[in-house]
Simulated assay, not measured.
Amino acid sequence: MDAIAKLFLASLTLLYLSQALGHCELSDIEVEQKSTGEIVKGKKEYEVVINNTCICTQYDIHLDCNGFNTVVSVDPTKFRKIDDFQCSVNNEHPVFTEAPIIFKYAWDIMFLMFDEARRYLSYS
């Protein structure tokens, strides 16, 4: 009987951990932007850091980047326009916890980027 109780408790613990650790949301993707203070080709330079704060890997991350423009090249494997409204992060490949995607762009203004739920992402 004691072995059955221990097995049941172990099963419940495993079920709880698999649910707690295996569920990531788009809200677990944080985007921070800040001015670098540099001027590039007459435009202000900004640095963008996209980080996955969930313990699980996330794929296929798209941001609403309507109007995004830059006078410097951005590595398309990190961030690229798909169409006039969406940009792909990390070429739709995995974004791992504590492995941020970082790039810079230069333009007159800092662009507001939204997640697919039209939620403002953080800026500093």
Rank of each mutant, 00 (worst) to 15 (best):
S18N: 14
N51F: 05
Y105E: 05
G37A: 05
F114R: 01
A106S: 12
H93I: 03
E30S: 11
L7A: 14
P76N: 08
L14T: 15
S35R: 07
E38S: 12
V74P: 04
A106F: 02
W107A: 15
C56S: 10
L26A: 13
A3H: 07
D60L: 07
S11N: 08
E30H: 06
S18W: 11
N91R: 04
L15M: 09
K78I: 12
E116K: 04
A20I: 13
A117V: 03
H23W: 05
E92S: 14
L21Q: 10
L17W: 10
Q33H: 01
M113W: 06
C24L: 09
K78T: 11
S73A: 14
E45S: 09
N69P: 02
T57F: 11
K34Y: 11
H62F: 15
I29A: 04
T77W: 07
R119T: 07
V74K: 00
N69T: 15
G42S: 04
D28V: 10
T77F: 10
V71S: 12
E45K: 05
L14Q: 04
I4A: 14
I61L: 06
D83E: 06
T13A: 12
L14I: 14
F8W: 05
E45V: 00
F79D: 02
P100W: 13
E47D: 07
I29G: 04
I39G: 01
D115I: 02
C65I: 02
Y120M: 15
F85H: 08
T57S: 06
C56E: 05
Q33M: 09
H93Y: 00
L7Q: 06
K6Y: 15
K41A: 00
I61C: 03
L21R: 08
T13E: 06
D115Y: 05
A10G: 11
C24P: 07
T57G: 02
D64I: 13
I55E: 01
K41F: 01
K78C: 09
P76R: 05
V71K: 00
P94H: 10
L63A: 00
I101Q: 11
R118A: 08
V31L: 14
Y16H: 11
D64S: 03
Y16W: 15
D2R: 14
C54H: 00
K78P: 08
Q33G: 03
F96P: 02
T77Y: 10
K43Q: 13
T57W: 01
A99E: 14
V40H: 03
E45T: 04
G22S: 05
M110A: 15
C56H: 12
I109P: 01
S18Y: 06
D84W: 09
G67N: 11
K6R: 12
N51G: 04
F111R: 00
Y120K: 14
L17A: 09
F85E: 06
F103T: 13
V72W: 03
L9N: 11
F111H: 10
S18E: 11
S73L: 03
L26N: 12
I101A: 09
Y16I: 15
Q86L: 15
T53H: 01
L26K: 06
H62E: 09
V72Y: 00
E30D: 04
I4V: 15
M1R: 01
T36Y: 00
N52V: 08
G37K: 01
C56T: 10
F96C: 08
E30F: 04
C65P: 03
E25Y: 12
F111K: 03
I61Y: 00
D115N: 13
